[in-house]
Design a protein around this nucleic acid. Structure first.
Lengths: 116, 116
DNA sequence: TTCTTATATTGACATACATCGATATGCTTT
DNA sequence: AAAGCATATCGATGTATGTCAATATAAGAA
């Protein structure tokens, strides 16, 4: 399994835990990409949604549950889910009437490594 | 030296490299705080500024150098520096006419750990 | 089909903020 | 004091986006 970080390919096992990636110069394009990801995380509601999903024993949650838990309207929840889904932070799966969302780790790993 | 992470105090040496902090439920207040930090990182210009500072051998840079390097006006650079300074991401020191900025690691560490 | 529930989309509105020109403040030198 | 350079602040403007009500779409039940 391989991971791309700033134009360089690493085998997963070759990545040290905390590589200092901010130490190299970011190209404008890289900066735009990373900023877009950080922007997705810059909403309290979205962070709470991620936290709620991560706290589930199944590591997933149906959208209706988020509507009940957070004090936001159903369209707003749906909007946030869409933003995170399109950013590659969430995966979704329909099972009957309900749609279950789960966290995709890859993008979060990229961001974490950038911050090292 | 101590670090506060989500209401818990850690001695620096006691922090494991990659503790999974998103696994616990975030309070609304924590979510607001973290989101504000992520928002600071959600601008490409600011990420490039951080990257430029980190790439210096002295780990610092004077504001004028940023104005020259990035294609933004001096007031805009000054604005971004202020945002990052007030967020605790940058320290500054005046030496004569120039003001030198450097990266403060603590907040970045908090964010990185949250993403684990 | 009809009804009910779950999720998504649309449209509108308000707020946040990145950006810049103009100007102010601060430090150094002459 | 005056001039020159570095940095900060102010005011204005345009754009992005979080939010909700209303509505549409989708799936299962009766």
């Amino acid at each position: 399994m391989y991971v791309n970080i700033r134009n360089m390919k690493f085998s997963r096992s070759a990545i040290p835990c905390c590589p200092p990636l901010l130490a190299g110069k970011l190209t404008p394009e890289e900066a735009v990409q990373l900023a877009a990801l950080f922007r997705v995380l810059s909403e309290p509601a979205r962070l709470q949604m991620l936290s709620l999903i991560a706290a589930q024993s199944n590591q997933e949650v149906c959208a209706c549950e988020l509507v009940e838990t957070l004090g936001l309207s159903q369209p707003t929840i749906s909007h946030h889910l869409k933003v995170m889904y399109e950013a590659g932070l969430l995966g979704k799966e329909r099972r009957g009437t309900w749609i279950y969302y789960r966290i995709l780790q890859d993008r979060l790993v990229v961001l974490r490594d950038v911050l090292a």
